[in-house]
């Protein structure tokens, strides 16, 4: 027994030593700012780190549905509230949590919106483990930077400098209409949510509460990805966790999506026209909460007005 205890102690000491080395190496490998050149992944989603501290009222996390449906500059134009979409293609909930943790390091949003499609995305066990472990050992996420490391990597972080011009929104004005024959056919059936994802939503809720933010579940319109079974599943989860849930797929009056003109890929994602309708709805919703104040006259936010002019000139003109 003493021999086994000694062996276990030796192995534990070895593992501890290894963790310390990897933790130390992590400082070397972590990107020194949030630009692509510095090795940051998903720079659109991580662009929030380049925003001035405590300047964002609403943070959105989610997959491609989020960044194609919600336009922060449109919300700014209508309300004067600042928002940022931390969206990335096929985002896993574990990564949504990571993005939120990073956002909370510099921002104090009052509202966090979680686009619900990623709640149904099965996360490979390996990804869950890697995402969790790389939270403490970033070298596991950024190890591939050995290819691009420079002398600067041996110095401390030089501050995040990158942010996206449209605050995470990705503009697309193509039109490719959708078939809506089976879209949102009513049913009592419930699409089950993977257990790991349920736990992650709970953790995201706790993270938001710990940072003084409210969590809102939002399903943006999509004929391809959304149906009533999924609606029921998210509703059940929202009731269980006492969260507010808005499904825009069930609100054709408030968000009148025309599926022949408002999607660029046959109902999978919304195009600019569709995103305007969703953003307009969100603007009204945010006003209704009375949680935020209009910052359009605040000189600290003058850059948003400049960006809006550019947005209107380029995006709205192109559409």
């Amino acid at each position: 027994m003493v021999k086994i205890a000694k062996t276990l102690l030796g192995l534990a000491a070895f593992a501890m030593g290894l963790l310390v080395i990897l933790y130390g190496l992590s400082f070397l490998f972590v990107p020194k700012n949030n630009t692509k050149d510095a090795g940051m992944e998903e720079i659109y989603a991580n662009g929030i780190q380049g925003e001035p501290p405590n300047s964002i009222d609403v943070v959105v996390v989610g997959d491609s549905e989020s960044y194609s449906s919600i336009s922060p500059l449109h919300i700014w134009k209508t309300t004067g509230y600042t928002s940022y979409v931390c969206g990335s293609g096929r985002q896993y909930l574990s990564y949504s949590k990571t993005l939120l943790e990073r956002a909370f390091e510099t921002q104090s949003p009052k509202l966090v919106i979680l686009e619900t499609l990623c709640i149904y995305r099965q996360i490979p066990a390996k990804t869950v483990v890697m995402d969790e472990v790389s939270r403490y050992l970033p070298i596991l996420r950024y190890h591939d930077r050995w290819k691009v490391m420079t002398r600067e990597d041996f110095s401390p972080t030089d501050g995040n400098s990158y942010t996206t011009p449209y605050k995470g929104y990705r503009h697309n004005n193509k039109v490719s209409g959708a078939d809506t024959s089976n879209y949102m056919a009513q049913t009592e059936k419930i699409a089950s949510i993977p257990l790991v994802n349920r736990l992650l939503v709970k953790q995201i809720q706790e993270l938001c509460e710990a940072n003084g933010a409210k969590l809102l579940l939002l399903s943006t319109p999509s004929t391809v990805n959304w149906n009533y079974q999924r609606h029921n599943g998210i509703q059940e989860l929202a009731d269980e966790l006492d969260l507010e849930y808005i499904d825009l797929n069930t609100k054709p009056q408030e968000v009148p999506i025309d599926w022949s003109t408002d999607t660029y890929d046959r109902g999978d994602h919304l195009n600019y026209s569709g995103s305007r309708k969703v953003s307009q709805f969100l603007a009204k919703y945010l006003e209704g909460t009375q949680m935020f104040s209009d910052r359009r006259g605040d000189s600290k936010y003058a850059s948003w007005n400049t960006l809006l002019q550019d947005y209107e000139a380029k995006v709205e003109k192109a559409s």
Binding site: F14, L22, M130, H143, D144, W146
Partner: peptide, 24 residues
């Protein structure tokens, strides 16, 4: 031995083809 094991493990962690940009 321990130095070699640590070096080999760090080699794997740094130069392994896993994570972002790789297909398992």
């Amino acid at each position: 031995r321990i130095a070699v094991y640590y070096a080999a493990t760090c080699f794997l962690v740094i130069f392994g083809a896993y994570g972002i940009g790789y297909i398992p």
